[in-house]
Amino acid sequence: MKTSYLVSSALAGALALGCVAQAAAADEKTAREKCYGITQAGQNDCANLSGSHSCAGQATAAQSPDEWKYVPKGACKGLNGLSPAEAKARLGKK
């Protein structure tokens, strides 16, 4: 009985590694960039520029220039977003 659990676990782990590797390869093909000032409240991707939080989903205001979200490379301008340099300039950071 224990052997079947061990074999099942090993097989599940091997399959999961294959899926992770495939997802990582797909991610590398799709270039992404940080786009500031386009997020909705609670939908940012990670820490903001001002340092008031350090986690995804903690934005408190929509379209805040210090909150960002990953978008396909080249799509930020079409969304009226800011590049990292533009966002830092707007916030007065170096």
Score class of each variant (00 low, 15 high):
1 M>L: 07
3 T>V: 14
4 S>N: 11
5 Y>S: 04
6 L>Q: 15
6 L>P: 02
6 L>S: 15
10 A>F: 08
12 A>T: 11
12 A>S: 15
14 A>Q: 10
16 A>G: 13
16 A>M: 15
16 A>F: 15
18 G>Y: 02
18 G>A: 08
18 G>H: 05
20 V>P: 04
21 A>P: 05
26 A>M: 13
27 D>V: 09
28 E>W: 12
29 K>T: 12
30 T>L: 15
30 T>D: 15
30 T>A: 14
36 Y>E: 00
36 Y>I: 01
37 G>R: 01
38 I>T: 04
39 T>D: 04
39 T>N: 05
39 T>L: 01
40 Q>R: 11
41 A>C: 10
42 G>T: 03
45 D>Y: 01
46 C>G: 13
46 C>I: 04
47 A>Y: 02
47 A>G: 06
47 A>D: 03
49 L>G: 05
49 L>S: 07
49 L>V: 10
49 L>N: 04
49 L>C: 08
50 S>D: 13
51 G>R: 00
52 S>C: 14
52 S>Y: 12
52 S>A: 13
54 S>K: 05
54 S>E: 06
54 S>V: 00
55 C>N: 09
55 C>A: 14
55 C>F: 00
55 C>T: 08
55 C>Q: 08
55 C>G: 07
56 A>I: 05
56 A>M: 04
56 A>E: 01
59 A>C: 11
60 T>N: 10
61 A>W: 09
61 A>P: 08
61 A>Q: 13
63 Q>D: 12
64 S>W: 03
64 S>H: 12
64 S>K: 07
69 K>H: 09
69 K>V: 02
69 K>E: 04
70 Y>E: 09
70 Y>N: 05
71 V>I: 09
71 V>F: 00
72 P>K: 12
73 K>S: 08
75 A>M: 13
75 A>K: 13
75 A>R: 12
76 C>F: 04
77 K>W: 01
78 G>K: 11
79 L>K: 15
81 G>S: 03
81 G>C: 03
82 L>G: 03
83 S>V: 05
83 S>N: 04
84 P>D: 06
85 A>N: 06
85 A>F: 00
85 A>E: 10
86 E>P: 02
86 E>M: 08
86 E>T: 04
87 A>Y: 03
88 K>C: 02
90 R>N: 12
90 R>A: 15
91 L>Y: 02
91 L>R: 07
91 L>C: 07
94 K>H: 10
